[in-house]
């Protein structure tokens, strides 16, 4: 059987992307260096901090631990698929308003973890939010306002007229 050596085609934020690069390259580097999607951050490169979290087929994964070869044929979503500074996603808006982050380096990864959670479980309780964010290290906020903002968002969404 003939195996394609290179040239994975990956759906990133709804677009099919092809690139002739090494299949062992971590997805995080492909996103950042090849596709110039630098919203995905790298804090450790070993799956320990969660800054590089993206969605792969709807699940939160550390993109530093996904070899490009494995991403082939899958759907990837990154922070760039959400709002932009002029038109924030409502969850992004509430994180800003509530001071849920400080330096912002962990924030794209946190957003993607929350997105994965809320897409599979629209009304999680606080314990479920904590479980979902256990893999996202934040050194600035102590997570207090992050939890507060997330729970506010969930509550408000559940009480929309």
């Amino acid at each position: 059987m003939v195996k394609p050596l290179v040239g994975p085609s990956i759906e990133v934020n709804g677009e099919l992307r092809v690139a002739d690069v090494d299949s062992t390259m971590p997805l995080a580097l492909f996103l950042r260096d090849v596709l110039n999607l630098r919203g995905t951050k790298i804090g450790c490169g070993n799956g320990e901090c969660g800054a590089c979290t993206v969605l792969m087929d709807g699940r939160a994964v550390c993109s530093c631990l996904i070899p490009l070869g494995r991403a082939r044929g899958r759907k990837i979503r990154t922070i760039e698929s959400l709002g932009n500074p002029k038109a924030l996603h409502p969850l992004q808006a509430i994180l800003v308003e509530k001071g849920a982050f400080q330096c912002g380096f962990c924030t794209p990864g946190v957003m993607m973890s929350l997105l994965a959670l809320l897409e599979s479980n629209p009304v999680p309780d606080e314990a479920e939010v904590r479980t979902a964010l256990q893999g996202n290290l934040c050194r600035c906020t102590g997570y207090v306002k992050l939890l507060e903002a997330t729970m506010t968002y969930i509550w408000e969404r559940g009480h929309e007229p």
Partner: peptide, 18 residues
């Protein structure tokens, strides 16, 4: 809220790594 908030929360803020 932080002036830089919207840039950070959307991944648009530019760090040295970027």
């Amino acid at each position: 809220p932080q002036i830089e908030g919207p840039d950070k929360v959307t991944g648009r803020a530019v760090y040295t790594h970027d």
